[in-house]
Design a protein around this nucleic acid. Structure first.
Lengths: 209, 209
DNA sequence: ATGGCATCTGGACGGTGCTCAGATATGAAA
DNA sequence: TTTCATATCTGAGCACCGTCCAGATGCCAT
């Protein structure tokens, strides 16, 4: 109302059902978990018929892609913020911790995000190619810390290694088996830092080996 | 027929429907992918009614757990074989490569295995606690290579880091974006070795930092 | 031979993704 | 302003799903 986007492809009956559906999906996801996220439930939540979404998304997976897309944007923003709050080599660890914390705080959304990735055979543009994507942010940080941008293979390997660390930890950090260890190390953050420190790329200059 | 297990909890009508259902599920999984793996389809494949499986599994997820269980056993065996074919520090890399190759060669099964893990809040016994499980094999190998078994926190951190590397790579190695890099490095195996080498734990003595 | 019981079937219920004909609202053309 | 093509939405329907239940079926111990 206060800020109507006048030049957009105008909404017809509902207002902006596409937007409403994505929001409804995120609401459902947070409240009921990923298994409750059916297309019909989303339509119900948005107050439309079960067939309405098909005028805005080709099928269910396209809706989930849209939800995932926003998730990657949010994650990217949180990582950028974490990076700007750290200095030097600590920036890499800060990125990793932000990544894992996002997954911990939005487990259902993170699952949808990665399920969408798994269904493709390539990392989508959101993640891999865009300049402010999570993947590029890691790579750029490696460069800022001394990695040689000309040594493309080396740089890419280091980025992959870092990404594996983040994603692996995101899926493992919550397991109850590690609760005592977290306790012993003085909390979740210390635990994450400690694991990242075990990865060479976080503790040695990335171009040094 | 040739080798009937006589002392087992005797099969009644079908012979051994539980076994047959698991086999049918694995067959379907390989042929049609994870999305085709419905309980009804499994029953159909095994030649029984849709309700029959409920006398052997509480629900669908329990069947999938059984399939996943066998998957972890197979993976453990392949890792053990890979380890025995390597010497010294190369054993760790061999374990990692065996892990990733298993995931590449059995993508649908690997997905079922990890989906089953994700639905729990702890790593199941198959993976984490049993002596010949994948997780313990990594930990034991770290010990054999000089990690101090008494420094429990340190040892567990290193194991977690290695596990994250393996799992992360298992999910990323297939992305098309990395095809040129694999090419440049001289094949998939070289690529995997190179990524593992970027992880400190694979290249430095695990107790050294 | 009989009875008990694990096993399996057929049918049913509510839910799902998706399609399609038809109703409805809209912005643009006449 | 009236008309009209078109985007949007609905309701009904299809095939499939996971799960449950009453009852039929076959095995085993008695």
């Amino acid at each position: 109302m206060s800020e109507a986007k006048s030049a957009e492809p105008r909404p017809y009956h509902h207002g902006d059902l596409r937007r409403a559906l994505i929001d409804a999906a995120r609401r459902l996801l947070e409240a009921e978990g990923p298994s409750a996220l059916s297309l019909r439930a989303v339509a119900r939540e948005a107050g439309v018929s079960p067939a309405a979404p098909y005028h805005h998304f080709k099928d269910k997976s396209e809706l989930l892609d849209a939800v995932a897309h926003e998730g990657w944007e949010t994650l990217g923003a949180q990582m950028a913020e974490a990076k700007s709050g750290a200095e030097g080599r600590a920036q890499l660890t800060a990125l990793g911790i932000a990544y894992v914390c996002f997954a911990r705080d939005n487990p259902a959304l993170y699952r949808v995000m990665y399920d969408a990735v798994r269904d493709k055979e390539a990392l989508p543009e959101d993640i891999h190619d865009k300049d402010d994507s999570a993947y590029c942010m890691v790579r750029d940080t490696l460069i800022e810390q001394g990695a040689d941008p000309a040594a493309e293979a080396h740089l890419e390997l280091a980025t992959i290694a870092a990404w594996c660390a983040g994603h692996g930890l995101a899926e493992m950090a919550g397991f109850t088996q590690f609760a005592p260890l977290k306790e012993a190390l003085g909390g979740e953050r210390r635990f994450l830092e400690a694991v990242f420190e075990h990865m060479g790329l976080f503790q040695h200059p990335p171009g040094a080996c």
